[in-house]
Computed example of a mutant assay.
Amino acid sequence: MEKKILVAVDGSPAALKAVDYVGLMEGALIRDLRVTLLFIMSPIPPYLRREGQRNPESFKRLRELESRNRKQAAQVLDKCAERLVRHGLDPEAVEKKPLPRSSDAARDILFEAEQGLYDALVMGRRGISKTQELFVGSVTNKIVQHAERLPLWVVGGQVTSHKVLCPVDGSEGSLKAVDHLAFMLGENPECKVTLLHVGASLGNYCTLDFVETELAEDIEEDIMHSDAQCMDDFYARALKVLDQAGLSPDQVETKTIEGGLSVPGAILDEVKKGDYGTVVLGRRGESRSFFLGHVSDKVMSKAKDVAVWMVG
């Protein structure tokens, strides 16, 4: 089945690394991929448009500015398209899409991503400069916070590993992450996926210090027992989804980490030790401590040379 993704580019090194990541994944893991490269052009000041309606010289300058914007967009898009073709993508599978900026960059990117019915939106973790601010500061936050209706892939650094890690907690959010992973990577005998579960502990659910050690131990045991039952059911459902997508049981590993590190700490530690290039996270988890807000933020901000998929 054909997959369609949107890659927001701005000519920055970070955006080029996002393009390289798409080329890497298409060459090794993702089949039947079509890529649309999106460039949001710099805005034209409203006062200049108003002045251009009254003053011929201002109108001339307006047209010159529009021409420069189109030329810049064409240069960036051509460079990114050539990069994808060098990675092995069919030129016919790459579309270049320059769009005028109508509101702010984040809104324009999200609007195109949602209206175009793409299977994922891909972006670099850092942008080009303060003049465009496609991927810097508040714009990044807006896209991360509001891209809940489609999967968002945030590429941080130069990804070289094909290995895929999918942290799970037994929730419907985690199952959605598995389902997206299965759709994008299915029917590929070379794909290897690890489903990682960070074992539940009292510290993940409660910040209080328990004076009664025995009570804390009893509660911890109850939590762990419930967590184990939940994960048994979850793995049965997840493995069925992956199997139906064409990923055989020997392509999927399940792994549990008990105690010690925090959830994001355990994920980041596993990413580093296992040399993973892609981490797939559900946006909503079983509790506030699992893959909601601070966990995905920490993984995204601290994972080096890794792409983080957020599926919601």
Rank of each mutant, 00 (worst) to 15 (best):
K3R: 14
D10A: 09
G11S: 13
S12H: 05
Y21R: 13
L33K: 12
L48P: 03
R49F: 12
Q53L: 13
Q53R: 14
R54N: 09
N55R: 08
P56V: 03
P56Y: 04
F59H: 12
K60C: 00
R61E: 13
R61Q: 10
R63P: 00
S67Q: 10
N69C: 09
K71G: 08
V76D: 00
A81N: 03
A81T: 06
V85E: 12
R86V: 01
L89W: 05
L89T: 02
D90W: 03
P91W: 01
R101Y: 04
S102C: 07
S103P: 00
A105G: 05
A106L: 12
F111S: 14
F111W: 12
Q115H: 02
L117A: 09
V122H: 09
I128K: 15
T131S: 11
V136E: 11
S138C: 02
I143H: 02
V144I: 15
P151H: 00
V155D: 03
V159A: 13
G170H: 05
E172S: 15
F183N: 08
P189V: 15
K192G: 01
L195H: 06
V198I: 15
G203A: 09
Y205V: 08
C206N: 03
D209L: 09
E212W: 02
E214C: 07
E214Q: 11
D218C: 02
H225L: 08
H225P: 00
A228T: 04
Q229D: 15
M231Q: 03
F234Q: 12
V241D: 03
Q244T: 13
S248I: 04
S248R: 10
D250I: 06
T254H: 02
T256L: 11
G259H: 15
L268S: 08
E270D: 06
R283Y: 05
R284C: 02
G285N: 11
S287A: 13
R288V: 06
F291C: 14
D297L: 10
K298Q: 14
S301W: 12
S301R: 15
K302T: 09
D305E: 15
V308P: 04
